[in-house]
């Protein structure tokens, strides 16, 4: 039983991070119908920037909480700037171009960001400092760390804030209108370009937070970390129904749970034939199963025809 609970806890932590990243994919897809392939690299930039800022400030004797906050702020600002620039340079000129063209520029951006990061931070793994005291709590025989609690809480708060923004504010209404039909939204006086920029900026800020969380939880930052994380988060977004905010959150959490439970139990289930090294397979099997049996995703209600 305690293993089960432990895997649930691990899954929730992993899942809330996936959810944050998935939101970035889903917001952009909802509005532009574009898979922002480079989003995972923004997460990576967030993690590495936070790493450098925090270790730098700690070296100067700045107290840890202050350094952590500064790290998050600097990472968020940098990621927002990168997200904004990427949209302006690589995606905006290609609106209305053949559908695959922006996908290729996205891949190009992804390669540039990844290798740019490698130039700056090198090929090595960087040990990420502990941001919160290593405190542990017992929950039904399983342990949960303070860091894990904070991660889940912070992710939940951020997502609640985002939902409020989208559902309750004028800006959110403009975003929803643009997602529904950009041309009509434009006619109704919505500055679609501004909304698109804002979407990228918002998504990138979430990515920075997610980057910090990943690195804090796994104590590591690396130039290559964004790729597989982005892939998983995108899977989560599709799982929940891409273009749908609630779907991204549900999909993220679910994927986290599936992965950690799957990895925890696959050995028993297959009589030791498959081990936990198949963890990454679950994400994709689940994804394929969902898409085949419920192509609009778990939460998705409409499948907008986008040519």
């Amino acid at each position: 039983m305690d293993i089960f609970i432990q895997q649930i806890i691990n899954g929730l932590v992993l899942g809330s991070i996936y959810a944050l990243v998935a939101l970035g994919y889903t917001m952009v897809y909802g509005i532009l119908g574009l898979i922002n392939f480079a989003h995972g690299e923004v997460v990576m930039l967030g993690a590495l920037t936070a790493y450098s800022t925090i270790t730098g400030l700690l070296g100067l004797g700045v107290p840890l909480p202050l350094a952590a906050l500064a790290g998050l702020a600097v990472a968020a600002l940098l990621c927002m700037a990168v997200g904004y620039t990427v949209e302006r340079i690589a995606y905006r000129p290609l609106r209305g171009a053949p559908r695959l063209a922006p996908l290729i520029t996205a891949i190009g951006v992804s390669i540039v960001l990844q290798n740019g990061a490698m130039m700056v931070w090198g090929r090595n793994y960087h040990a990420f400092p502990n941001l919160v005291p290593e405190r542990q709590y017992d929950v039904f025989g399983a342990t949960i760390t303070l860091l894990q609690v904070l991660t889940v809480l912070l992710a939940a708060l951020t997502m609640a804030g985002l939902m409020l923004l989208v559902l309750r504010t004028k800006l959110g209404r403009a975003m929803r209108a643009t997602a529904e039909n950009p041309a009509i939204a434009q006619l109704m006086g919505v500055d679609v370009n501004r909304i698109v920029s804002l979407t990228f900026v918002l998504g990138s800020a979430l990515a920075a937070l997610a980057g910090l969380m990943v690195s804090a939880n796994y104590s590591i930052a690396h130039y290559y970390m964004g790729f597989i994380l982005g892939l998983k988060a995108f899977t989560a977004a599709v799982l929940g129904g891409i273009g749908n905010l609630a779907g991204a959150m549900v999909g993220g959490i679910l994927l986290g749970l599936i992965e950690s439970l799957g990895a925890g139990y696959i050995g028993d289930l297959t009589g030791g034939f498959f081990g936990s090294n198949y963890q990454d397979v679950f994400a994709f099997f689940v994804l394929i199963a969902v898409l085949v049996f419920r192509p609009s995703g778990l939460v998705g209600e409409k499948v907008a025809e986008r040519a």
Binding site: L94, A97, P98, I107, G108, I111, V112, M118, M119
Partner: peptide
Amino acid sequence: DPESLRMLLFGLALILVMLYRPA
């Protein structure tokens, strides 16, 4: 690092070609 430089240039080339020749 020459390895990352070449991939960086490659990524840039992808972006530029698509921007100027989307087909």
